[in-house]
């Protein structure tokens, strides 16, 4: 579903000046880098970290929505939600595979997530308390993810870009199903509309934080932009998202909880855009560092899933070995 502005990556390199210049020339010529190509260690490390983080976000992101599958209000909603959560699992797999082309193993990536060395998007550390949250997550969380992922389809690393194209294609139904849930609630009873508004109140600011810290404070933006991993700044993507979202909120008839929000004709090179109030970055860092409402639950649940599934993986391997041995024995006869 989502990759966040990188948290704590080390993109230092110690290759020769000539090597780095030749690599940069390829990037500047918009050439794609493929797994067997020579690449700076920092580029490889940064990508492993970013793609891994992105994959973890997809997998952990299954939990907040999975929370409502059994309580979806109709068969239609349940089928859609099941299909969406299933997609997120698939997106995680595409991304893990892309990371594996860089020489890291799936097991390593999972260990990094479980022991806290690797992060995932801060947004999944917020709880889904009401059915309206499923609408809001689809509309806003997936909406923000799409905003962020579309430029990643042109990322300089081939396998990541190809995974993103596939993800974006599948993602388009996610946002629409979420918006449809909210539209139905907003056209319903006063209590239902209130549920939608209350949900928007809780999610709006955390969703804006998904784009990562402001450009002045983001340490890795410059190098990642040079390497063609990042195409737009965090602030530029956030602005695009807000400008696209406010009119959609108006159609729903609910309001974002920002008293400072106003239209400014001078933004976006004179095309105009919305100015927003201050974002609470202390909250963002608190959540990133493990102190959000759901951090412990998310990792505990995932660890339980990995542990509970261990016997299935072991049984599958044992079965495959048995079948291979049988085949060998039959060939010998």
């Amino acid at each position: 579903m989502y990759s966040q502005g990188l948290i704590g990556s080390d993109s230092s390199t110690d290759e020769t000046v000539e090597f780095l210049a030749a690599f940069q020339a390829r990037i500047d010529a918009e050439e794609k880098i493929e797994p067997n190509d020579a690449m700076p260690e920092g580029y490889r490390r940064t990508l492993i970290r970013q793609i891994g983080q992105h994959a973890h976000s997809e997998i952990i992101g299954m939990q907040p929505e999975g929370n409502w599958i059994t309580r979806a209000p109709s068969l239609r909603r349940k089928a859609a939600l099941l299909a969406k959560v299933q997609d997120e699992g698939g997106h995680g797999l595409y991304l893990y595979s892309a990371a594996e082309t860089l020489g890291v193993s799936r097991e390593d990536l999972t260990d990094q997530l479980l022991d806290g060395r690797a992060k995932y998007s801060s947004i999944f550390n917020y709880p889904t308390l009401s059915w309206a949250d499923i609408g809001t997550v689809g509309w806003l969380v997936d909406g923000a993810a799409i905003m962020n992922q579309i430029p990643l389809c042109r990322c300089s690393f081939g396998p990541y870009a190809r995974a993103m194209i596939r993800v974006c294609k599948e993602e388009s139904f996610h946002q629409r199903q979420g918006y449809e849930i909210l539209l139905t609630l907003c056209k319903g009873s006063a209590a239902q509309k209130e549920m939608a508004q209350e949900s928007l109140n809780r999610w709006w600011w955390p969703v804006l934080m998904m784009f990562g810290p402001s450009d002045g404070e983001s340490v890795h933006s410059d190098q990642n932009t040079k390497w063609g991993i990042k195409r737009f700044s965090n602030d530029a993507l956030r602005q695009k998202f807000i400008d696209a979202t406010i009119p959609q909120a108006k159609v729903l008839g609910i309001e974002v909880p920002d008293p400072d929000l106003k239209w400014d004709d001078s933004l976006n090179d004179g095309r105009g855009g919305y100015v927003h109030g201050p974002i609470d970055w202390d909250e963002f860092w608190r959540v990133v560092k493990g102190h959000g409402a759901m951090n412990r639950d998310r990792i505990r649940n995932y660890k339980k899933t990995v542990d509970d599934g261990a016997w299935v993986r072991e049984a599958a391997m044992a079965h495959a070995e048995k079948r291979a041995a049988r085949k060998l024995a039959m060939a010998a006869e």
Binding site: R76, A79, A80, A83, D87, S172, F173, Q175, R176, Q177, Y179, E180, L183, P247, Q248, V251
Partner: peptide, 19 residues
């Protein structure tokens, strides 16, 4: 028959524009 996996299954008013 799993048409709900496609974006066009969901009804979005025209005024919302492209989503």
């Amino acid at each position: 028959d799993k048409v709900y996996r496609h974006p066009t299954f969901y009804e979005i008013p025209d005024e919302v524009g492209h989503m």
